[in-house]
Each structure stands twice: as C-alpha cells, then as structure tokens.
Design a protein around this nucleic acid. Structure first.
Lengths: 334, 334
DNA sequence: ATGAAAGCGCTAACAA
DNA sequence: TTGTTAGCGCTTTCAT
C-alpha cells in the first residue's frame, strides 16, 4: 500500500491539490473552514509531503548534505552538532554520508549527496582531491571544514593549525623540554599546517624538529611511538590528534615509560576523549561546535545569495593543559 | 547556473531523453556509437542524474534511511560501518540523520528521513515511542537496532542483553565479588533487558542486586558512582555501557579508589574506547558490524518482498576480560 | 479564496 | 535500436 499523496488528501477534504498545498505551507489566504478540513484529512491519512517532489516542483531545496570523513573520530560528531544547530535554525535539514577516510569512498559519498540536489554541501575533513569538489561548487555551494582551498567558489572553516602546534611546542618548551617529536597526520586533512607550525616553532626555539609520519588514528599513534623509541625516545610528543595521542600514550606505557613522568604527550582537538577524566590529555582545543555552526552559516549565506566572495574562517585554537604534560625528568630532578 | 539535466545531455549528444536514460542505466540495447556520444556529452557537462526525479519516475528507491540516536557514542559508528557495507553490496545508499537522544528530535529525524521516501529505514538505538514508527512501518520497512518490538511489520536486531549482563555478573562472582552494583541505562534503548539480566543473575548467586539509575553517557557514569559511594561502595560495578564505565572509573579514582584494586568495573559494547590500551576495559562485546549488516539485510529482504514475517535477530554477546576486573581486595588478601 | 493547467527531471510503456 | 508520450507528487502561475 503506497503512501498517501497530496491528491488523496485533496480528495478526502473535497478540495483541489493546489489548496492542500497552500494549507500545508501555511498560506494565510485560505478560509478557516477549508484549512481545518484539509488538516483533518491529512491527519487521518497520516500524510507527510514528499520532500523531493516538492523540491523538484519548487526548484528549491532545504537540505544540506554533509560528508563526514570518519564517523569514528569523535571530533566530527561534535562538529556535526554545530552544523545541525546552525542548519536547523535556518530551516534546513541535514543529510549525512560517510567517506571512510578513503578518497574513492569520499568521491562516491559526494556524488551520492549531490544526487539529492541539496542546497549546499559540507565536507568534513575530506581527503579527496580538490578537483572533486571544485566542479560541484559551480552549481552547489560547498564548504570545507578542516581543509583549506583557494578556490573562490568554496568556503572554508579551519582552526589555525600552525598557531595550535606552536602553542603546544611553546607549552612544552616552557616546561623545560628540548627533545620534542611530532607525529603528523600523514595525508589527512590539516596535517600540513600543523606540521609546519611545529617545525617553525621548534626552529624559533633553536631546537631540532623530529617528525614521524602518522595518521589520525590510535593505531598510528602507537606505531609512531615504537618508531620513536630508538635511538632514544624524546621527552615530549605532539600527536596528530587526540585519538593518535591516546595510542601514543598506550605504546609509551607498554614500553615502560610513564606519562608524563618520562614523556609528556599533547593531543589535538580536545574531543570528549581528551576530557575523559581517565585520560586527562593536554591538548589543543578547536572550537568544534562553532566550526560546525560557521559551516552551516556559510552555506546558508551562499544559498540565499547573500554572499559571493569566499568565506575563510580561521579560528584561534586554545591550549588546554591537563595531566599528560609535566617538566622532563632531568629538569624536575634539579 | 543550474545543473545540467538529462535534456541537456540529450541535446548535446543529438539524441532523445529516453536514449540517454537507457545509456545511463547500462541498457544493452543501445548502439555503441550513440552510447559513446551520450557518455561523452554527459562527461563534458559534468552531468549526474537527479536521484529523486529518478525515483519519483520509477517509483523505486535505492536509499536506506538511518537514524542514529547518538553520534557521540562510538558504538553507533561501528554499527553504521556494517550497515554501510551491507547496503552498498546490495546496491543501496545510506542517508544518515541524528536524533540526539531526545524523543522529539528523533521524531523529527524520522520524519525527515521518510520525506525522502527511502526504500527502508533503520533506527539505531531509538528512544522514541513505538507509535512513532509502527505507523511508518505500514508503508516503509523499518528495522530497529538495539531496541525490541513486538510489531510484526518491524524487524529487530539486538544482542541478548540479559545474557550479556549475566556473563558480566558470573565473571565478577567467579573472581570472588559479592557486592556488585549496576548502573543502568535509564530509559535508553536496551537498558531494561540488561538490568533484568543483572538482577536475575544476582539472585541466582544468592546476592542482593543494587541498581542505580544512569544513562548511556560518561557524565552519568560518574554521577552514579558518587551515589554508590555511601553508605559503602560495592566491590564491583557493571556499567550501562563503555562510555558510562569510563565515567565511573574516573569518579572512582577521584574518590581515591583504585580500579581494579578496590573496585572492579565492567562495561558493555566493546567499542574502540574499551579496547584503547590506555583504558583496557573489561566489557561485554556486541558484534557491532554484524548487527549493522543484519539490519541492512533485513531491510533489503523486505524491500525485495522476500520476507513478510518479522526478522528477530538476537545475537550472543561475549565477555572480553581486560584490565579493569580483578579479585576483590579482601579475597586477594587471603 | 479556490481551481485548472503546466511543468520540475526523470523513467517506462508503446510505437516506429 | 530509437523516439514519443504519459505520468511520478508536488508547486506555481494564471484565471476565476
């Protein structure tokens, strides 16, 4: 048994399709009697409008497509919260897709999203090549979160990764560390600026950078630490993100090194994982909900044609000191 | 500039709309020459079909709607992985929505999903009243994950929560515990069977159940522990889920109690959070990916009309012993 | 205030 | 093998 259509409602209420349409969209130019009849008929039939037929006919859409690169990383859940709030308050609805941190899968996800002809698309931490979304941005507003772009039809929302890494380095240096290693995010989104920020800050302090390639996962954090163990472990590690940091901590402890006693560890993101009292990770906070909200806003502005120049949000990160950083052993013994 | 339509492609390739449609859907009854021309035109225009116009015309859908109750709980990300794999291999695509653990929001999410007229809908850990989805299930196949239902038009995929809780209790009892408390999941999905399993197992061992109301969050775990501290803390706690367990552990440690030295803690779900070496939580494993796969399969079977009887998957949970459980202090002193 | 008619992008008979 | 025609469920002029 197919779902009831507007035609069914019209028939039951004894009016025309057009009238039902008006009532459903709250037009004031409908008599109270007819309005009541239509609403009752709709109610009785359990009618709910076919959103896509509607947007096909009206040539408009109130759907924002969201591609999440990695549903497992709590960071994105928190960004989605902000996006959801922003979209909702502007009368838009979210449709989410996931990319599994693979360019090919992300491409599919984006195509899938676009096939709904959404009003706009947000790509959260995409790793796909820029060409994949610049084309789309000609027809549909696109906003990138945690990834930069110079394409003028694409908006971006990022934290200042260079500044964030520098804050972490400065914090560690001020504690007395001089051997500070960095596990990077490989070809993950935003890993380049964070790496640059780290290297620059190290040089500024007259220290030698030591970067080991990683990924935004726990396993990569653990693997990277094993690589760092020889010839001699650093006294501090700036991880790619919180997840990565937790993996690094585990591997350090497995190797018989205590955190922060022997090695200090700093994460990045400040997700709930870092805040777990049991983890208490010193980390760099990104304003996650705010980033989501700004992404929604950027899209909505483009949709409404209120802006044609690219939005380039670069938000200031913030150091959050918790329990995984301390003065190096040699220093504390002084 | 609007996106190109099938009409644009047809014009550019010098053929009719219908022919383009045939080519795009891989019909064999098209000459090689025309096919090439059409594909080239589509390529040049960057054309991608309007999925909703397609499903409107064909009266079919290859979209599965997914309502995730809580995007922050890693459990669901792992279920979605399975769902995605299952859907993909059957030629379906996922559209995800989130409910924020609130009945009202979930209702909106479900309505939003249904307005796309998906082939089927999966509700992951819904807390909304059954009436909200029984109506929908008359028109659209519905599968519930981590929530039971007796409605014959609704399929369900659950782990055996009673058995899972019993396993946890048995494990703790075998270690020598007698004062075992349970933090429940409040009105969260599946909290009832887990609680029943706990109470039944406790009675079977001649022990007195002690249940404190909770929720599937870290904060609730911490709050529940504070309530458990007086008059005297138990020697073991079965938490509502992994997230909850981690909160409980933090609160215990804050109160000066060590885990598992003073108090043993068992989680539920076996998400990556529990597996983090830094957490090493003893927990009850649910086959998350498998549950997602089964949910997708249930939907696909209904869509294809291959089954009209309700699917009732009840999967066996499994005890995973890690580092948060040990014999109680009094025993180990013997 | 209400209805008739056209059309959104596409598929599915049916013709040719 | 290809084109023509009639919708799918809805909105939107344009009349009335």
């Amino acid at each position: 048994m197919p779902r009831p259509t507007i035609e069914d409602v019209a028939a039951r209420a004894g009016v025309s399709r057009a009238l039902v349409s008006l009532v459903l969209r709250g037009s004031p130019k409908v008599s109270a009697g007819r309005r009541a009849a239509v609403l009752r008929a709709a109610e009785e039939l359990g009618y709910s409008p076919h959103l896509m037929a509607r947007s096909l006919a009206s040539r408009t859409s109130h759907v924002l497509g969201v591609m999440v690169s990695d549903l497992h990383n709590p960071f994105w859940a928190e960004v989605v919260d902000g996006l959801d709030a922003g979209a909702r308050s502007a009368g838009f609805e979210l449709v989410i897709n996931t990319g599994g941190r693979s360019p090919a899968r992300e491409r599919q996800a984006l195509t899938g999203l676009l096939s709904f002809r959404p009003a706009g698309v947000a790509l959260l931490g995409p790793v796909l090549p820029a060409s994949a979304f610049t084309g789309a941005s000609a027809h549909t507003p696109v906003v990138l979160v945690s990834r930069s772009s110079r394409v003028s039809t694409v908006d971006t929302v990022n934290d200042d990764g260079r500044a964030g890494s520098a804050m972490a380095v400065d914090h560690l240096v001020s504690l007395g560390h001089r051997e500070i290693a960095h596990i990077d995010g490989g070809n993950g989104s935003q890993s380049a600026p964070r790496r640059t920020g780290y290297v620059t800050a190290m040089r500024r302090h007259g220290l030698t950078p030591r970067v080991v390639r990683g990924e935004y996962t726990e396993a990569a954090g653990a693997a990277a630490v094993r690589a760092l163990l020889s010839p001699a472990p650093p006294t501090a590690v700036l991880a790619a993100n919180d997840l990565n940091a937790v993996g690094a901590i585990s591997a350090l402890e497995e190797a018989g090194l205590s955190v922060p006693g022997d090695v200090s560890v700093v994460g990045y993101d400040n997700t709930w994982l870092a805040a777990l009292r049991h983890v208490s990770l010193t980390t760099i906070d990104q304003p996650r909900a705010e980033m989501g909200r700004l992404a929604a806003e950027a899209l909505v502005h483009r949709v409404r044609g209120e802006r044609v120049t690219p939005a380039r949000h670069l938000l200031p990160p913030r150091l959050v000191v918790r329990a995984t950083t301390a003065a190096p052993r040699a220093m504390s013994g002084l």
